[in-house]
Design a protein around this nucleic acid. Sequence first.
DNA 1: TGCCACAATTTGATATATCGTATGTCGAAC
DNA 2: GTTCGACATACGATATATCAAATTGTGGCA
Lengths: 240, 240
Amino acid sequence: MLSGETSMYELPVRGETLAEQIYRQLATEILSGSFAPLDRINIRQHADEIGVSVTPVREAVQRLVSEGVLDATDKNTILVPERNEPEIQEIFDIRRRLEGDMAATAAPLLDESDDVFLKKTHGSYLDALDAEDYKTALRLNSLFHFRIYKRADLPLRLKIAESLWLRIGPTLRHMYPTLQRDRTDHRRHEIIIECAARRDPVSLRTAVIGDLNSSQLALNRYVGDQTGEHRRSPSPRRMR
Amino acid sequence: MLSGETSMYELPVRGETLAEQIYRQLATEILSGSFAPLDRINIRQHADEIGVSVTPVREAVQRLVSEGVLDATDKNTILVPERNEPEIQEIFDIRRRLEGDMAATAAPLLDESDDVFLKKTHGSYLDALDAEDYKTALRLNSLFHFRIYKRADLPLRLKIAESLWLRIGPTLRHMYPTLQRDRTDHRRHEIIIECAARRDPVSLRTAVIGDLNSSQLALNRYVGDQTGEHRRSPSPRRMR
DNA sequence: TGCCACAATTTGATATATCGTATGTCGAAC
DNA sequence: GTTCGACATACGATATATCAAATTGTGGCA
């Protein structure tokens, strides 16, 4: 019944519905890139795997569909969408606005513990990249950014931003291994750490937007390369 | 089975699930202010009323809950939330960004049919206000704005904006009757019409933001008046 | 009259059963 | 060998049944 499993990070919070737990679990997996674009989501199969009925799984999946994170265009299939260039453009346009706001608002509210966390997380992030452990890298990247955003106390923007991260997660995950890792890439995070340490709203906003610009550029290069090339598997692959 | 009813505006689109139809219907009602803050939503009751099982109703309601349009904080109740001043602030901050973007992008893409539509809709809007038919007024107001936004072809921003309108709908509806209607209020829409007719991105963005500022001011005045006063019904009222 | 204990009811959450459609497979006809 | 259609299978959508928590109503006692 899921409660008995004590699944390490996913201890079932008292008062939280199954559907919410499953949603959070799916969201975490999407954010860390466990699903690839065009992967299929099978409600029954997933329900069996985690030992619950289809109802709460269906609710969690439908929530992601309604957020635009998953796609249910085809009548009988739910799948992880691929993002094209215009979609990426709009996602990042909105992210620059909202995450810029949050970064600027958070700047004067940060403290030493944030400085330490950012530095440590960035270090682990680099380690994960070196180890080619991209799931961990993605997770650490999101922890890095949202540590700052959460300080802003702008819950609506935070929620929308999370939804946008979920939208881009699968595509981002598949781009990561193709990334040319030169030092300028790492510099983006280091600049953010520096601006955060200075508690300066204007420069921190600029630094975050710079990081977003760099991500978007890499993504556009990636999806640009993909289009036109023969698609690997025309038939959607199974989950996991 | 809902399909047989041919409910005038809600003709069941082929291929649309029941849950989607119910979601759209609920959203439309929320947008036009059919629900008041603190109203309770009863899944079974609603399912009975429209003659379907609880499953699709529950899915539609849960979707609204996950969007933050409805509240399910209390364990056994789903209700329409009241908005406080900080929530209103953030909603409008984001709306200024997103709706401003859409207005500016749409400006050069508008045509004569849009001019006609905006003028006509604004006229009907004034009529509805005079007749104190606030549901119609709210609906016309949203049609007015979204006519412009839809031209921008920025689907993600459009979706987020719709969600934000849903969040503020119930509170806005209850503020409307308290509104002091002087001519400057109407001028906001007229300025938008003029800027739209000139197809000018910068001034249209400014005009839309001006309209939002005016709305936010009125809302803040309203919720400011409400706080401290005795609440009418401490026990949540029934739906309908 | 006021208040507390306990049963009945209500409600959302979850499980299970059923439905309709899409898809894939296999065999017959050409 | 190719095409087409009947049948089996898989899937999401919906309906129904059950559960547990929470609320409400009520009766009895102080």
